[in-house]
Amino acid sequence: YKIYPYDSLIVTNSISVKLPKDVDRTRLERHLSPEEFQEVFGMSIEEFDRLALWKRNDLKKKALLF
């Protein structure tokens, strides 16, 4: 996945969300650098992957990456 800054990946309720063209809309968190991922989620990507799907989705919603 290509890395993008968190600010360019957050999704708000506005209709005209302009995400970069090559971003996987269903896995926005994968486009964060490991350092920024840790900062946003408070855990590593590996720890995040071990969580239940509902928990990952809940965290993504709170981080505006859903």
Rank of each mutant, 00 (worst) to 15 (best):
N57L: 10
A63P: 00
L51P: 00
G42D: 10
H31M: 02
D58R: 10
D58P: 02
L32R: 00
L19Q: 06
K21T: 13
E29D: 03
E36R: 03
S16M: 09
K18Y: 08
E29L: 01
H31G: 01
S8D: 13
D7I: 15
L59D: 01
I10V: 11
R25E: 13
D24G: 02
Q38R: 13
D49E: 11
Y1E: 06
S14M: 10
K2N: 11
V11S: 10
Y6R: 02
L64I: 04
L65F: 02
R56L: 02
Y1D: 06
E29H: 02
E46R: 10
I45D: 04
T26I: 06
L64R: 13
L65V: 03
D22R: 04
D22S: 04
V40N: 06
K21Q: 14
L9S: 01
D22Y: 04
Q38L: 14
R30T: 04
P5D: 05
L9F: 02
E36T: 06
N13G: 14
V23G: 02
N13C: 13
L59P: 00
S33E: 04
E35R: 11
I10L: 09
D7R: 13
F66S: 08
D24L: 04
K60L: 05
I3M: 06
K62E: 09
S33T: 06
L51D: 01
L32G: 00
V40S: 03
L64V: 04
L53I: 11
V17A: 14
F41W: 00
A63M: 07
T26C: 15
I3G: 02
A63E: 03
E35A: 12
Q38M: 14
L28Q: 01
L32N: 00
V23M: 04
L65P: 01
D58K: 11
R25H: 12
T12R: 10
N57G: 06
D24E: 06
R50C: 11
F41I: 04
E35F: 11
Y6K: 03
D49F: 06
M43L: 07
L59Q: 03
F66D: 08
R25P: 15
I3S: 06
V23S: 03
Y4P: 02
F66W: 14
R27V: 07
V17F: 04
K18M: 13
V17P: 13
E47Q: 12
F37W: 03
V11R: 07
K18V: 15
V23E: 02
F41Y: 01
A63T: 06
V23W: 02
F37L: 02
H31N: 03
R25Y: 10
T12F: 15
N13M: 07
L19P: 07
D49C: 06
D7Q: 15
E35V: 13
P20I: 04
A63N: 08
R50E: 13
E47N: 09
K18F: 09
E29G: 00
R50S: 12
I15P: 14
E39L: 15
Y6M: 03
V23P: 02
T26G: 11
K18A: 15
P34A: 13
F48V: 01
Y1T: 09
I15S: 15
K21I: 13
K55F: 09
